[in-house]
């Protein structure tokens, strides 16, 4: 089950594809050992829900309804309960996203520093039609986020796990080129 973090965007197209769901936490897998280890630290299995969902998202890029069911089965809670949690937190993706998930800070200080133009530049150069939509090549998804906590370095942008500070519209094409595929 070695899905790299960059694999899922193609594998899961929008709208219920027929391919059967492949579980993340299969018996004997590294992920399963990791999860079991986590569970052993908590008084109840469901306490490990948030990290379990992170594992799914790291492996698959997003959390499908099948994945919610699998996590529910692993942690003795219902698919409905897992859905409530997944949808509560905005950082869990309920749809496939691009391989490079670009979050532009648009809270007040960054807006003053021209974050709006940074957003426009990203949308233009990635080919994403709208905030939240993935580019046709599956490479990029751009969204706005609330404060990334780097107001001194406006405008900060988070791409997957990495921060890029002091981004201006002019820097965007170079940034994207450096991301590679």
């Amino acid at each position: 089950m070695s899905h790299g973090p960059s694999a899922p965007a193609h594998a899961h197209g929008h709208g219920g594809e027929a391919a059967p769901y492949v579980p993340v936490f299969t018996e004997g897998s590294a992920r399963r050992r990791e999860l079991d280890d986590l569970i052993s630290r908590y008084p109840s299995r469901r306490a490990a829900l948030l990290p379990a969902l992170w594992m799914v998202q790291q492996d698959r890029g997003w959390i499908s309804e099948d994945a919610m069911r699998e996590v529910g089965e692993q942690l003795d809670c219902t698919a409905a309960y897992v859905k409530g949690v997944v949808t509560f937190y905005t950082m869990y993706h309920q749809h496939p996203v691009g391989r490079h998930f670009i979050q532009v800070c648009t809270t007040s200080p960054c807006l003053c520093a021209g974050a709006d133009d940074v957003v426009k530049a990203f949308l233009e150069h990635t080919g994403c039609k709208e905030l939240g939509l993935t580019s046709p090549d599956g490479k990029y998804t751009v969204i706005e986020v609330e404060c990334l906590g780097a107001c001194g370095f406006a405008t900060p942008v988070q791409i997957n796990e990495d921060y890029v500070e002091c981004v201006t519209p002019e820097k965007v094409p170079g940034l994207l080129a450096a991301l590679g595929d």
Binding site: E65, A80, Y81, K83, G84
Partner: peptide, 20 residues
């Protein structure tokens, strides 16, 4: 248990688990 509260804040709604 097929119902849950989905989303949060002013987006929150009652929702069903998948296929339920």
């Amino acid at each position: 248990p097929v119902l849950c509260v989905s989303e949060r804040g002013d987006r929150a709604v009652i929702s069903k688990a998948a296929d339920a």
